[in-house]
Design a protein around this nucleic acid. Structure first.
Length: 950
RNA sequence: GGGCCUAUAGCUCAGUUGGCUAGAGCGCACCCCUGAUAAGGGUGAGGUCACAGGUUCGAGUCCUGUUAGGCCCA
């Protein structure tokens, strides 16, 4: 008897064994070896989107990095050269926020504030860099534990000087095309720290504030009455002599000096109301509520009208007479100042339905201002005091003191309808715990409509054309998503007022004007590419500009300022601009590759990296950085709800409970377009399914213990097409083409499914069950047995290569066991390519055989239910072979396929009880040749021969 | 509120351009094997395809709306 034997264990023990594989690959330099081996092969240029270097990796990273690794490994095994450089996004607010938080906690913040500004930036930056590098190390370790293959020795980091220089190259190119401009934008502003704040730096706390109902007197009474359908005759009749007012409500009276317009909702109904003698306009639904606030006694609704018909009506500002100065670089329509405009965000929840609009002091207000060409007026200075343009009674005063001052003024002048103190949740600066304000500041923007050097087209136009016509999207809906976002996106605000990032290389003259051109940016970029962005904070303007030649700068407007008179700006670039230049900072810089084949990221990146990369590359190169994008959805919990951060296992737990291969096996089973549910139970299921595949491979290996492919192998092309071994290899060929095709389409789930089904059905249930008898009972060297072993050897080799992209450890373990290379550190399936097939002849009549097998099994099931005939080896089956096809096949193969002792052919299917016949003690088959042999055993001829008995 | 997407057996998913008695695996139930054995094999029960309309000879598949959920905006 030749029973199975193998050192490939049933229990995978991935938690111990995977790190060993990892070490072995590292020691053998697998990544470098693969580069060498694939040198000169067609390249597949795949580019890693840099994850943010903060904290332990989570399931989203596991998904993303696994999918990327499937791509890298599968393309590589198709024979392509797939260099893959992992990257990290190292700059930005979350790190700075975290680091500064630590400084505050350690009581170092006050000390820091005493330093000169350069030194403050440098101190924070130093701490940020240390922190970021630590995070990169942590995440890289976890990603490697996930068994992803990449150039971890040489990752790209956005804080590398060469990378930073490359980012500025892109910026310079945009400057060159006059696509970069400065304009106002409202931001959260901390008066205490005199700095802009990001959302993450806000803390909402309760605060008592003053809210006021204010009447803005209409400029043209007749027009207002007309808008409500009241003509002059009707006015006389109803004794409406008063000039109507527009009633607004605000919780920030200090922004009233900056009032530019009043917004109404075009579709809502507004009422003209007589309130204690005066006539006011407010939302119909809010009349009662507002009247109650003012303790009005006599309230009468005179008429109603849609908000849309009020648009354009003008009013007098209660205390500002001259049209305020307009915002930087923005066109102004003076006719619209102090008039009613329409806006969607106006609600009938509270207030009056007429919204005080100060474009310099609110996000919505700003949008409205830009749309309506209103002045973006911000009379508040960085220290929270009013500037010179305001009325003298508040000029120079703090906005917080101004609230009551303004209330008094309004009351005195008869504009105040009502006022009250109230509590509300209000954003505060997380560091100083003081309330923040909205304030317009100057920011850098990239114009998405301005003409580029690429045929004069705008970035948006170019991006849309590429997305619509040239880019490949997997899944297809990525196109409409990207297109939708490109169509509606505003100009790109690329500046931030922070320390941790790449500075915008802008200098300022003594009069405050900006001195920056493409050549200036390039000169600074050269310094930074060499010394890093720290140089911006440590070097003088003159030194930074040492490589700048004013004489050859076509963009220089006027004389070159003396470098000593220039000061540096402290704006840094949006991190999305940095990562959006990774095609330049990583790929072009290293390998000259451009454009990339594909980017693969979560669907949130349609707004993020996909878009920033597209705009940056189109701007500089005129070509998209990638030919296509693959998108995946997000993890949700088992009920389909958003995954909470605190819930569930950490990735470290998953590694130590299941191992990377099981996790990857699970990832490969996911329909990754759309949301993916995660639950502890799913990893258990994946583990079960993994074990099934593993056991199949183990069984293959365990029957190859005495097989030496060089000595015993044969060429499948010589095998009879009717042999079961030829059949199984043709099935493998179908599998391979399906799996490789799926890999090409990034359809990993299909590949997973196909391989799982192949192991289960084709191998475990049909083929391997059938060939057991010959493997165990034929003589060791019988031609039939060796041929089956050859098929099994090829199947193991082929299957381990097909599995390798998904299960790098297990596939390599199997492959190395197969070729007997357990001691050879360099042998690896990952250096191999996929086996598409082995040239076995195909015979279409196998379909009939498999149908006959099903019919036979069904007949046996039926027979079993009607008798005690339980063991298939106690039965013989007569198969219906009406067209004589089955007779062409080996009857032993047919019997083994059914697991019975004998088959015959007849007009219909039937089952015979063979328990009267003698049973071979060795093979347990009922056979007419069984008789007592020389050693006293009951054996069939075949088994006797195998034992050398007569 | 807007854009894009998802909704098929208890669970994970297939279902090309509308034509099926709606499929597969897991799980479950029953049975076999005991020479892949903390394995292997066979059989079976599970669905008004989220809901409501509409187009059509015919709709899981197309259209409209609703509900629930996700990503990104506002």
């Amino acid at each position: 008897m030749n029973l199975p034997k193998t050192s490939f264990p049933m229990k995978a023990n991935l938690v111990q064994n995977e790190p060993a594989s990892q070490k072995r690959w590292a020691k053998a330099g697998l990544y470098e070896q693969l580069r060498k081996a694939r040198k000169g092969s067609p390249k597949f240029v795949f580019h890693d989107g840099p994850p943010y270097a903060n904290g332990s990796i989570h399931l989203g990273h596991v998904l993303n990095k696994s999918l990327k690794d499937f791509v890298v490994r599968s393309r590589s095994m198709m024979g392509m050269d797939v260099p893959f450089v992992p990257g990290w996004d190292c700059h930005g607010l979350p790190i700075e926020h975290r680091v500064v938080g630590d400084l505050v906690a350690k009581g170092k913040a006050d000390k820091l504030a005493e330093l000169p500004v350069e030194a403050q930036h440098s101190a924070i930056r130093k701490a940020c860099a240390e922190y970021a590098l630590k995070q990169v190390k942590l995440q890289a370790g976890q990603m490697q534990r996930l068994l992803t293959m990449a150039d971890y020795e040489n990752p790209y980091l956005t804080l590398h000087p060469s990378y930073e220089g490359a980012v500025l190259e892109v910026l310079a190119s945009l400057f060159e095309q006059d696509l970069v401009y400065r304009a106002l934008k409202p931001v959260h502003w901390s008066v205490a720290n005199q700095t802009a704040l990001a959302d993450a730096e806000l803390e909402y706390m309760d605060r008592e504030d003053l809210s006021v109902y204010v009447e803005f007197e209409a400029m043209d009474a007749v027009a207002v009455y007309a808008a409500f359908g009241i003509d002059e005759a009707a006015r006389d009749e109803r004794e409406l002599g008063a000039t109507p007012s527009f009633m607004i409500w605000t919780t920030t009276p200090w922004t009233l000096p900056a009032n530019i317009a009043v917004a109404v909702h075009a579709e809502s109904s507004y009422a003209l109301v007589r309130v204690d003698g005066s006539v006011v306009v407010l939302a119909e639904d809010l009349v009662k509520q507002v009247a109650a606030k003012g303790k009005a006694e006599d309230v009468e609704v005179l008429a109603t009208a849609k908000g849309g018909s009020l648009v354009g009506l003008r009013y007098k500002h209660p205390f500002v007479n001259e049209v305020p100065p307009c915002g930087l670089g923005q066109a102004v329509d003076e006719a619209k100042v102090w008039s009613l405009v329409a806006a969607d965000y106006v609600t009938m929840e509270d207030g009056t339905g007429l919204v005080h609009t100060a474009p310099g002091h609110g996000q919505d207000d700003f949008q409205t201002g830009v749309r309506e060409k209103l002045p973006v007026y911000c009379p508040v200075r960085g220290d929270g005091t009013y500037d010179e343009s305001t009325p003298d009674w508040i000029r120079g005063k703090s906005i917080w003191d101004a609230n009551s001052e303004i209330e008094r003024w309004l009351a005195k002048s008869g504009h105040l309808f009502s006022s009250e103190r109230f509590m509300h949740s209000y954003p505060h600066d997380w560091r100083s715990k003081t309330p923040v304000i909205f304030r317009c500041t100057e920011q850098w923007f990239v114009a998405v409509n301005g003409p580029t050097k690429h045929g004069g087209k705008g970035l948006r136009e170019m991006a849309l054309a590429e997305a619509k016509e040239n880019l490949a999207f997997v899944p297809a809906w990525g196109k409409s998503r990207l297109v939708g976002m490109l169509e509606s996106r505003p100009d790109w605000c690329i500046s931030r007022q922070r320390s941790w990032g790449v500075p915008v290389p802008a200098f300022y003259r003594e009069d405050g004007s900006v001195f920056t051109t493409a050549a200036v940016v390039r000169a600074v970029a050269a310094v930074i590419a060499d010394k890093g962005t720290d140089a911006w904070y440590t070097m003088s303007a003159a030194d930074l500009l040492s490589g700048y030649d004013a004489a050859s700068d076509p963009q220089l407007d006027g004389p070159m300022p003396e470098p000593q008179t220039l000061s540096k700006g402290w704006d840094i670039l949006d991190v999305w601009f940095e990562s959006g230049a990774s095609w330049n900072g990583c790929m072009r810089a290293r390998t000259g590759e451009f454009p990339m084949e594909v980017y693969l990221e979560g669907s949130d990146q349609h707004r993020g990296w996909f878009q920033s990369s597209l705009l940056c590359s189109l701007g500089m190169m005129g070509t998209p950085a990638y030919k296509g994008i693959v998108t995946h959805g997000f993890m949700v919990d088992k009920d389909g709800k958003k995954l909470s951060k605190s819930k569930g296992d950490t990735v470290e737990d998953l590694f130590s409970n299941y191992g990377a291969d099981v996790i990857r096996w699970w990832v490969s089973s996911l329909a990754y377009d759309g949301d993916m549910k995660v639950d502890e139970a799913f990893f258990k299921v994946a583990g079960e399914s993994y074990r099934k595949v593993r056991n199949t491979v183990r069984f293959l290996l365990s029957n190859l213990d005495d097989y030496d492919h060089d000595a015993h192998g044969s060429s499948p092309s010589d095998w009879p097409a009717t042999s079961i071994d030829a059949w199984v290899l043709t099935r493998y060929e179908k599998l391979a083409s399906k799996v490789i095709g799926a890999y090409e389409r990034y359809a990993f789930r299909e590949a997973h499914q196909a391989m799982y089904d192949f192991c289960n059905e084709t191998l475990s249930s049909v083929y391997l069950a059938a060939v057991k008898d010959r493997l165990y009972c034929d003589s060791l060297d019988s031609e039939r047995r060796r041929r089956t072993q050859c098929a099994m050897h090829l199947l193991t080799r082929g299957l381990s290569s097909l599995l390798a992209p998904l299960l790098p450890h297990t596939a390599d373990e199997a492959y190395r066991s197969l070729i007997g290379a357990e001691q050879d550190a360099e042998a690896s399936v990952h250096l191999a390519t996929f086996d598409a097939g082995f040239g076995a002849p195909q015979d279409d009549r196998w379909n009939a055989v498999l149908k006959a097998r099903d019919a036979g099994l069904a007949a046996m099931e039926l027979a079993r239910s009607k008798s005690d005939l339980d063991n298939p080896l106690d039965t013989g089956v007569t198969l219906a072979d009406t067209d004589g096809i089955l007779a062409a096949f080996d009857s032993t193969d047919l019997a083994d396929l059914l697991g019975v002792s004998r088959v015959g052919f007849g007009p219909t299917v039937s089952v015979q009880d063979l328990r009267d016949e003698p049973r071979c003690e060795r093979s347990w088959k009922r056979d007419s040749t069984v008789r007592e042999r020389s050693d006293g055993g009951l054996l069939s001829d075949r088994d006797a021969a195998a034992l050398g008995l007569a």
